[in-house]
Amino acid sequence: MTSTNTRQVALVVGASRGIGRQIAVDLAKDGYAVVVAAKSTTSPADLAALSPFPPDPKSPQSTITTVAREITLAGGEATAIPVDTTDYASIQHLITKTIETYSRLDVLIYNSGAIWWAPVAKTPMKRFQLMQRVNVEGLYGTVQEALPHLKKNNRQGGGGGGRIIVVSPPIYSRFFRGKTAYAMGKVGMSVLVKGLAMDFEREAKEGGPEMVVAALWPAAAIESGATEQFTRKDPAYAKDLRKPAIFADAVLAMLKAPASVVNGLLELDEDFLRKHAGVTDFSKYAVIPGTAPRRIMPAELPDLTVKEQDDEGMRTDSSKL
């Protein structure tokens, strides 16, 4: 067993490539011990043969093994633990191994996701089921297993329990267009964020830890393995891409913000950095220097609250019936 009493522990699920890898690397630079989790691994022989190292973070050669190795070579602390988020037993094993290794868990980042963008008539049932299992069920299972451990620890500086950040979007109608099956899962993740945030608020009022859950989503497209299909067809598409560093910076800013600011937020990376981290110049994040990547998200998002928001009537808790 590894002891990390001086470090907070962050679990990043979906950390083998792209945004997830960048989050893991930057959390380690910020002093976290990082559990790097996803399905893809690299054998010791293949790891030794990789050249150059680290591999392109957009390529299949980038795995949880290479990311953990990249972190440790830079002087950070990381452990690679494989997980299949469609398998609840695998999720349970991930959390068990995390606690066996580090004895604590302070931060959970859920970046795992399955994508299929097509109208309903062109989305086969197997694709639909995979997206719901990875996106919604995977998140729900990971949160359920992690919650008892996240609630145990006080954050550095005092005054709070663990934090959860989910890669899921704000809820608005245009997001559903042309990708309904995908949107059902991703918006379902955001619904979990809003509902769990309400649970946390109630528990804190009753004397529990000050927990936080929030969602984060890119305001402009981010360079990844998924975007390479577009840049291969048209290299000019890269002018509309940002580096994953913008998302990782927003995650770190969320982790450092007061619970009252963050809990229950469905926010965009650029907007959070502008409002809460004082960032005004986003040019350093452009993949092609000197370009201004096109924002793909609305300038304003709907307020989901309604009149009588706090009038619940008689609340029923089925677990107590």
Rank of each mutant, 00 (worst) to 15 (best):
S90Y: 14
H93I: 09
S59M: 04
T63Y: 01
P54C: 07
G160I: 04
A220T: 13
L265H: 09
D234I: 05
G162C: 02
W116A: 10
F200L: 12
L27K: 10
E228M: 15
T86I: 03
V261P: 03
K307Y: 08
G158P: 13
P54E: 03
R174P: 04
P170D: 07
L47N: 03
D87T: 00
V279C: 08
G162A: 08
T101S: 09
R177C: 07
V167F: 14
V134P: 04
P60K: 03
G188I: 13
T101D: 07
P293A: 12
G207E: 04
E223I: 12
Y102K: 06
W117M: 14
A68D: 07
K256N: 10
I288T: 08
A197M: 03
R104N: 08
L108Y: 01
P82L: 10
V251W: 06
P119G: 09
V134D: 13
S3G: 07
Y32Q: 04
V212K: 00
G113S: 12
V279I: 14
Q22I: 08
T227G: 10
G195C: 06
V261W: 05
H276M: 05
M254L: 15
G159M: 10
S62H: 05
A24F: 10
E201Q: 15
A219K: 13
Q8H: 08
E228N: 12
V279T: 13
P258A: 04
V167M: 12
T101A: 05
K39A: 06
T96E: 14
R174A: 12
I296A: 11
L301M: 12
L268Q: 14
T79E: 13
Y285I: 14
M1R: 11
D249K: 03
T96M: 05
S168R: 02
G76L: 01
A197N: 02
A220W: 03
A214E: 01
T227C: 10
I19V: 13
A277Y: 00
A114E: 06
T6S: 15
I171A: 09
E267N: 13
M184F: 11
S62K: 08
F230A: 12
S168Q: 04
Y102C: 06
F230V: 07
D106S: 07
L11F: 02
M211D: 09
V306P: 01
I91A: 06
P148R: 06
D240K: 11
S103C: 10
P44V: 04
R242F: 06
V306K: 13
G185D: 10
D249L: 04
E100M: 02
G18V: 00
I222W: 01
A259R: 07
R7L: 09
A28K: 04
K307P: 03
K275R: 12
D303Q: 01
A221S: 14
A220Y: 03
G185V: 11
E203K: 13
A226M: 15
T123M: 08
A253F: 05
R242A: 07
I165C: 05
K29E: 14
F230E: 12
L304Q: 13
L47W: 01
A28T: 02
I246Q: 12
S319R: 04
A204P: 00
Q309P: 03
N153I: 15
L105D: 07
Q92D: 12
P52H: 07
A197K: 00
F175W: 05
V261L: 11
D240P: 00
A245P: 05
E145Q: 15
P218D: 04
R69E: 14
D56A: 04
